[in-house]
Amino acid sequence: MDTYKLILNGKTLKGETTTEAVDAATAEKVFKHYANEHGVHGHWTYDPETKTFTSTE
């Protein structure tokens, strides 16, 4: 398992979190669920070199 990072740049919520996942697709599902639960619906990007997802509203 690898550690993946999420950076949230929402209108009402900003911050970072991490998750352990078997691959990027699994981490993306976890992070999108997390963002949706916190009302963040933004544009998603992923940097495979740093294993970092960013959601920007």
Rank of each mutant, 00 (worst) to 15 (best):
W44C: 03
T3R: 09
E37P: 01
V22Q: 12
Y4F: 09
T56Y: 08
V22M: 12
E57G: 05
E20N: 10
D2K: 14
D47V: 05
M1Y: 12
T19R: 04
P48E: 10
E28D: 03
K51C: 02
T50P: 00
N36G: 08
K11S: 11
T12R: 10
A21R: 02
Y4S: 04
K32N: 05
A27Q: 00
T17S: 08
L13D: 05
H41E: 12
A27S: 01
G15N: 10
T26Y: 07
L13Y: 15
G39I: 04
G42W: 14
E16V: 13
F31E: 01
Y34E: 02
E20M: 14
E20H: 10
T19C: 15
N36W: 14
E57V: 06
T52Y: 02
F31V: 00
F53C: 00
M1I: 09
G10T: 09
F53N: 00
A25R: 10
V40R: 02
P48G: 06
A24Q: 09
A35G: 02
G15M: 15
T45A: 10
H38Y: 10
T3G: 03
K14M: 10
E49N: 11
A21N: 01
I7D: 03
E28W: 15
T17N: 04
A21G: 02
W44M: 10
A25H: 09
K29N: 09
G39T: 03
W44P: 00
E49M: 11
V22E: 12
T17V: 15
A24V: 11
K32R: 15
G10R: 02
V30Q: 09
L13I: 14
K14Q: 13
G15Q: 13
H41Y: 15
H43I: 15
T52V: 07
E57W: 05
H33F: 11
L13H: 14
G42S: 05
W44N: 01
I7N: 03
K29G: 08
V40Y: 12
E16L: 09
A24N: 03
V40H: 09
F53T: 00
W44R: 00
D2H: 15
L6D: 04
Y46K: 00
H33L: 14
W44K: 00
H41P: 05
T12K: 11
D47I: 05
A21M: 02
T26N: 07
F53K: 00
T26A: 14
N36I: 14
L8I: 13
E16C: 15
E28N: 04
T56V: 09
D23S: 07
S55H: 08
D2P: 07
Y46I: 00
T17P: 01
V40T: 04
E20K: 12
V40C: 04
D47Q: 06
T56D: 12
E20Y: 11
N9C: 15
K32H: 09
H38L: 15
G42V: 05
V22P: 15
K5I: 12
I7Y: 05
K32Y: 06
H33A: 15
D23R: 01
T26Q: 12
T3Y: 07
G15P: 04
D2A: 12
T54N: 05
G39M: 06
G42M: 07
T56Q: 08
E20V: 14
Y34D: 01
H33M: 13
Y46H: 00
P48V: 08
T45L: 06
A24E: 07
T12I: 10
S55E: 05
K29Q: 11
E28G: 05
G10M: 07
D47H: 06
E16G: 07
A27V: 01
L13V: 14
A25D: 09
K51I: 01
S55R: 03
T18K: 07
S55C: 15
V30K: 09
T56F: 08
K11W: 09
T12C: 15
S55W: 13
T3K: 09
E20A: 09
V30T: 11
E16T: 12
K11F: 13
T54E: 07
G15T: 15
M1N: 08
K5S: 05
L13E: 08
A21D: 01
F31T: 00
Y34I: 08
K32F: 08
L8R: 00
N36T: 13
G15R: 14
E57L: 04
A35S: 04
T18D: 04
A25W: 09
Y34R: 02
K29D: 08
Y34T: 02
Y46G: 00
D2F: 13
S55F: 15
L6C: 10
T19N: 03
G15C: 15
T56C: 08
G42Y: 05
F53I: 01
H38M: 15
L6V: 04
W44F: 11
K11D: 09
N9R: 10
T45D: 10
A25T: 10
T26H: 13
H43W: 13
I7C: 07
K14D: 05
T3V: 12
A21C: 07
T3D: 05
E20L: 15
M1C: 13
T52M: 03
L6K: 02
G10E: 04
I7R: 04
T12G: 09
D2W: 10
H41K: 13
T52G: 00
N9A: 08
E57I: 05
E28F: 15
K51A: 03
G10L: 07
T19H: 06
Y34F: 11
T26E: 13
T45N: 08
K51G: 02
T45K: 08
L8P: 00
V30C: 07
N9F: 11
Y34K: 02
F53D: 00
E49G: 11
L8E: 02
M1W: 13
H41N: 13
H38E: 05
V30D: 05
A21W: 02
M1F: 12
S55K: 03
L13R: 07
D23C: 04
K5Y: 15
G15L: 15
T3P: 03
T45F: 08
T18Y: 14
E49A: 13
T3W: 10
T17C: 15
A35R: 01
E16Q: 11
G42C: 03
K32W: 08
A21F: 03
V30I: 15
T3C: 14
G42L: 15
G15K: 14
G10W: 14
F31S: 01
K5R: 13
